[in-house]
Every structure is written in C-alpha cells, then in structure tokens.
Design a protein around this nucleic acid. Sequence first.
RNA 1: GGGCGAUUGGCUCAGUUGGUUAGAGCGCCACACUCACAUUGUGGAGGUCAUAGGUUCGACUCCUAUAUCGCCCACCA
Length: 907
Amino acid sequence: MLERNNSTVDLAKAYNPKEVEQRWYKLWEENHLFSARYNPNKKPFCIVIPPPNVTGILHMGHALNNTIQDILIRYHKMKQEETLWMPGTDHAGIATQNVVEKAIAKEGLRRQDLGREKFLERVWQWKEQYGSTIIRQLKTLGASCDWQRLRFTMDDEYSDAVKEVFVRLYNKGLIYQGNYIINWCPRCQTALADEEAPHQQIEGYLYYLRYPFVDNPEKFIVVATTRPETMLGDSAVAVNPSDKRYKSIIGKKLLLPLVNRTIKIIADQSIDKKFGTGAVKITPAHDPNDYIIAKKHKLDFNCVMNPDGRMNEQAGHFYNMDRFEARQVIVEELKKKGLLEKIEPYTISVGHCYRCHTIIEPYLSKQWFVKMRPLAEPAIKAVKDGKIKFYPARWKKVYLNWMENIQDWCISRQIWWGHRIPVYYCRACQSAEAERKPIDKEISNCPLIVSKEKPDSCPVCGSKDIFQEEDVLDTWFSSWLWPFATFGWPFSYQNEETKKKQQELRYFYPTSVLVTAQEIIFFWVARMIMAGFEFIKDIPFRDVYIHGTVRDIEGKKMSKSLGNIIDPLEIIAQYGADALRASLIMITAQGQDVYLSKERFEQGRNFANKIWNAARFCLLNFYLNDKEQISAYNKENLDIINRWILSRLNLTIKQVTKNLDVYRFNDALNKLYQFFWHEFCDWYLEMIKPDIKNTQNQKTLFCVLEQFLRLLHPFMPFITEEIWHKLNQSDKFLILEKWPQADEKFIDKKLDETMSTFFEVVAGIRTMRAEIGILPQTEIPLVIYAETKQQAMFFESLSLQLKRLAKIKDLKILLNYKHQDYTMTNIIKTIHVVIPLKGLVDVEKEKKKLEERINKVEKEIEQKKRMLENKDFIAKAPKEVVEKEKNRLNELQQIILKLKAVRNALN
RNA sequence: GGGCGAUUGGCUCAGUUGGUUAGAGCGCCACACUCACAUUGUGGAGGUCAUAGGUUCGACUCCUAUAUCGCCCACCA
C-alpha cells in the first residue's frame, strides 16, 4: 500500500552505497534467495561459475566475468525460472603450490624440507585460512550464487569424480604413459601441457658451430643453433638428402666438440636446405623435432640437463651450471678452439611457463597423456551443428581450428598439490629403472594397477608392498568435469541423497550458458565439451559467451608485475558495487576488450546518484494512498505526457529484454541509462513537476519507477533493492519480482515523434535565448506559429509545460505566420518560433547564420531531388524508404520557404 | 607462415540483417546553485566514419586490396 507521509521518507542527499550494499547482501543470503532446487514446474536456468583459484583475489577480469553472470542469473530469476548459479573454487595446482612455497620460504623452508605430507598439510591450512577470500569478494560484488552448494575441486566428492574419470579413460585405452618431449618448467619443476607453455618471441642469437670430421679434423661442417648448450647431447647432424652440398658426406663421422664423442651425419627429408647452413645438430632429448628424427634413425638419447635446468653429469665439466650460463661458457670455449663460425642476432619464439614465466625447456620424460582425437570428435560435431553456440560467433572458428588439430594432452604434473594419479605399483615387481629419469627405455613392464582405491595386494605377485604414483594430475583434468562433477557425479553410492543429486543433474544439465574469457577456450571450454560428451553423453552448456579481456587504458593486460591494476575492491569501496558493475557493463561491447581507467567508474557512480535523487524526489512527492496498476487504465484516459512516458517505458522494456536475450549487456544498460536519465528525469519529471499531485501523474510515476527498478535490478542490484523497499514499504524482495513485459498497446511511435518535435521546440527556444544572452531565469514572451490546427492544439495542450521548460510568459500559439516586427525567429522542424523582443538581435550575424542554414538545406534538397528523380531508386528501394524520402523533401521545401521568408523580412 | 580483431569528433567507444540529418560518455567552451540531484542543469563547438578500388538506386555498414595497431595459433634448428 502506498501510504506515505513525507516525514517518513528519509533519504540522504547523496547515495551512500556502502551501508546499503552490505545490508542487502546479508538479507539476501539470510533469506536464501539464491538457492535453487529441482522444480519440475519451472524452466531451469543454470550457470556454473568459472571457478576462481583458491589463491585468487578479485581482479577486474573477475569483476566483469561475474557481473555478467549475475546479470543473467538475476534476469532469468525474475523471468521466474528456477535459477542456479553454481559457485566454487579451483585448487589450482601449480599456482597454489607456488604461493605456499613462497610462504614457507619466509620460514627458510623448501617443500622438500617438509616432505610431501607435511607440505600438503600446510597447503590445506593455507586454503582454510585464505581460500575463501575470493568468495567474500564475490559477495561484495553482489554475486547471487547458491552458496550452500559451494564446491572445491579437491573436495572428497569431487576427487572421486576425478579418479572415476581417470580410471574410465584408462580402461578405454584413452590414457597412456610414455616418454616424450614435453614442456618442462625448470622453476616449477614439472611438465606442462602445450597450452600452459605459450610461445613468446624473444631476441636471441643464432650460433654457427663447427663440427670437425673424425677422419680430417682440419675440415668441419657448420651447424646453426639457438641453444648451443644442448650440443653436449647431440647424437647426429642431419642434412637434407637432396642437398648437393652435403650429399657426398652423408654417413661420415664427426667429432662432437668439447665432449669428443663421435656422431654421424644422417639424411632426413624434414631438414630445410635454406635455413642456416642446411645442416642441423640433432639433440634427441632436448628438442621435439630432433626427438622424432632420432626415433626414425634410432639415435641415442643423451640427456644433459637436470630437472632444475642445470647441466647434469653427462655434461662433463659443465656439470651443475645453469643452462644459460652453460650456453655462454660453451660458446666461449668453442670460440677459443676456433669452432665458432659466427653469431647472428635472431628472434626466436620460445615457450614460457604460464605460471612463473620461466623459459620452458623441451625435455624428454615419462608422463601420462590423454588421447584426444576420439574425445574431440563429438565435441567438434556439436559446435558445427550449432548445438553449442558461441557469442560472439567468431570464436566458433577458433575453437574448431584448435579441436581439429588437437594434440594429446599431457596430464601428469610433478608437483604435490593436486589429485594424485590413481595408479599403483608393486615394489616387488618394480625395478629401479621405473624411477623418473629422462630415459628412452620403453615403458617398464612392471604391472600398473589403475584403481580409484589403493589395492590390497599386487595382482601379479601378491605382494602387499604397493605404492602410488607420485605425480598429480593437471588442474584442468579436474576443471573439465566442473559442469557435472559439481552436482555430485558419478553418484558412486546410491542412497536418497545421491538420488536427489542425480535428479538435479538431470534437471540442470546441460547448463544454460558458460561465461568466460577468450584465454580459457582451449584450457577449459573445449575440454568441458569433450568431458560432457564422454561422461554425460550430452553438451555441458548451450551457449558460450566470451567476453573481452580487461586492459588498462593503454591496452596492456592488467597485471601485478606491470603495476597497472585497478582494484575492483577499491572501486567498490569508493563508488559502490553497483557503480562498478554499471561502469564495466556500459563500456563492454559484446566480446570486445575493455580499456579501463579509474575515471570510467565515475559514470556508474553518477548514474547511481542520479537514480537515488530521482527516486528521492518521487518519494517525497507521492501522496496517493492506493496503488493502482497502470495496466488497469485505458490509455485513452491518460494525458499526452503520461502516454508518452509509458510508450517510452514499454519500448525500453522491449529493447532491454531483447538485448539481454542475445547477451548485449551494454546495449541493454545503455537503453536503461538513456531512458531513465534523459527521458524520465530530464523530460518527464520536469514536465509533471508543477502538477505532480495529479492522480494520473502519481499513478504513472509510480508505475514507471517501479518498472524501471525491475529492469535495472540485474545490473545494479543493491540500489534498486533499496529504493524498491522504500517505494513499496513491504518485505517483498525485488529479486523475486517478475520481469516486466512490454505492452505493445502503449508503444506509440507517432506520439514519440510528436513529443520529440515538442522537445526540439523547447530546446530551440533555449538555444535562441542563449544566443541573445537572455538569462535563464528571465521570462520572455513567445509566439509559435503552428503548421496546422491540430498542431496548434497540441502546443496548446502542453503550454503549461512549455512555459515552464523554456521560461515563457505571454505564450501565443497562432496559425499563419506573418512577419511583423522582426525580433528573433527560428524555424524548428516546420514551425516558426518568434521571440517578440526588439533590439536584442545582431542583424548581420543573424543574416549570416540564416544564409548558412539556407545553403545547407538547399544542398540537402538537391540531394533528395536527385535521389527521387532516379528511376532505379523509385523502382528498387522499398516503398517506405521512398515515402520517407518524399516526406523529407516536402518538409525541407517547407523549411526553405520559411527560411527565405525570414531572410526577406530581414532585408 | 596461417587466423582473428581494431581503425568513427581531443580521449574512450556504440552504431543488431545496407535506407533520411552518424550517436553516447568523458573532456572542452559559455551560462546557471534557496527549486530531487554541482556526483547537477541548460546551451554550444568538434567527425569528408584509416586509405584506394568495387558491388548497389543507396555503403560507417557488404566485397577486394593497402596501411597502422593489437591478439591468437604453428616444431622451422
């Protein structure tokens, strides 16, 4: 009930987001407004959050990503769907381990000092202490996640899913172990997947080395390399078999410098004759291409480096040198021996660890892999067939390109924090060689036991001395199960609870949309699609919305090391979460990168403040005791101003809804911004102000404000909820209210046009006033010469407003323009507007301006005429367009007549 | 080497299937504070839509080149 006593409406002059936001979030949570459940009577809508790292703290990327999800969730909730936003965090193996290692380093400890178990204890401790930071921060942003469902990728239930998946894939023959050259990070000391080792160009050198012949040490062959330190592990030099320069020496023996080992010259098609000298040193254990060649030619694999990037015992007197130090020393020694031909500057592209940015070492080691081809097939098809849609669509191509060239996935990591690989060995059967060493022995025959649980005894020898694989799984090997493992899949134990969970999975899966950034398409999106098909036999989500990357104002990625971070929490503290959200959304065009500076957030703050003050004004002026729904009116009973604002409101509802449905958040919000600020505040409120107590104004005002709050709620949840309660004085939460539906019968295009003519006239008068220097508060007389009787009546009906808005006294609305005493005249649309005050006008200036305008209009008339004389245009353009052009020409011709009349009068 | 994106007023960007007079925010200039809001209001200046061709009755929009910037993918030592 709308019972209002002005003294009870107590709103501060400026909006104070801090207090409001905290209060409402608490109430939302306490009332479980975000919780979702199986509900067959409602359409499900589900988003799984891209789980932030437990080590994470909220950055702008999170803020954007989660604001978008929150908008979708709140929007669909208001559309009365059963809405679930599944939250959680990711254990982030390497990242978290690094963080904890740094922490214990302060105590002078390395993880090896603690041992695996103790170290893991410390990680869990760390997680308990700091792991919920990001969750708290998401709450300050307003995220409407179902927090009771909060998942962590290392939860028991979730870990069970990971093990299940490993076992299933292994049994299907899709997981294998093998010695391959993988991306090795010498700092993290673990293998990485290809995606985790992005290539970056760095300025390096191309070294030309001389390898002497065994039978003739005076002569040599020259090879080019960017990594001279690997020469210690060379097994051969390869040339192209068709290379005339080297044809005769294929098969000859060379003496590998510094190590004095004999190697052969071999021939291989893959060698590019044009590159370098056309002769390539082959280092099978340190280069993926050389590895392939070595396999083919059965060469030796000489590993010369330790996992920490230092040279190993095989490296002779370079032992224990760091790889880059060894590079310099080796080059130096070769130079002394006269075996360095030359050094050229050269740009090379090398992999970098995506966690610590150390240069990757291609390293031969025994790792676990997933065969991806079979998994990719259905995932490719689903996207090709449009079962999964990308927004913006261009990412489809990127996805397909990657999927169609997919490589096997290295999933083992030599770290401690993560899901330990569910593989067991029998010590009795195991020989010493099974220890991890970069070797090229075939996989040991020692029996593997792949099992979710530790087996009691060895199935081969019966020994009870069983131990588990040391490696853990790639973090993404758990993340790719997120859309279903979060529901409790695989429901290993059947009971009431798991049955309920199963039902929920069936209800919410496939989820509705995945919202993420482009960097994550390969890591996560593609793999979730594959896992979805493999384990649930269905797509994991229908839509994938890829938003842009948040960058600083210069287009650089925001990062700690660059020091260009804008902290969202600081913005929230300063301007409020609503302001942060609104600012981010307003400048984020679909899928485009966002360039941010602090000042951008003022726009959101200003908008919030504007809403606050407009609402305050309304609340101070409501006096009706009963609230009547506007839909109960017959719109014919409303006056033109109320009809107009309802027309604009309904159009806005339509546009906002449409834009939200296609993920055009900026368009949706900008429409609301435009409507509220410029149509509702600037025009509507100003027009009804003098007569605000009028019943129909009251009702319409209430209705528009109420509907607007609903529309804005997904974008700016806090301020809308606050005003909503002040407006309704009830306990009903806005988030539970229905999303407005546009009522077509209120949308009146003609009326909109008529009103904009009125606004143009008002603005035109203001311009004239400003030009002749009449102060805003000074009232002036005015004559309007309308075109038609109807138009005159229209202005008559708005004369009160016109007088107020343009500070007019003695308003005359006449029909036939007759120039009398020239004072100041303007033609707005086709209407003469005259300020009958003498002596204010600089006649020469006016003449000049008039001439300019006449010229412009004449030019346009010429153009229109040409257009309309063109037979092709008349024949081929749509009728409406031709009609429009004709009308415009007509109008222009009227305008020009009037302008000329004024000019003539001036002369 | 392939692919993608961007190029619109001083700045940052919109412009949804091609259709009148290309929009916004910020900034700038001028004016206005006892009036819901100076985190405001009113008015104004400022753009040959990167360049060159082409398609079309009509191009900011579609096509082809070119230039500049940015990103992604690829094992060329």
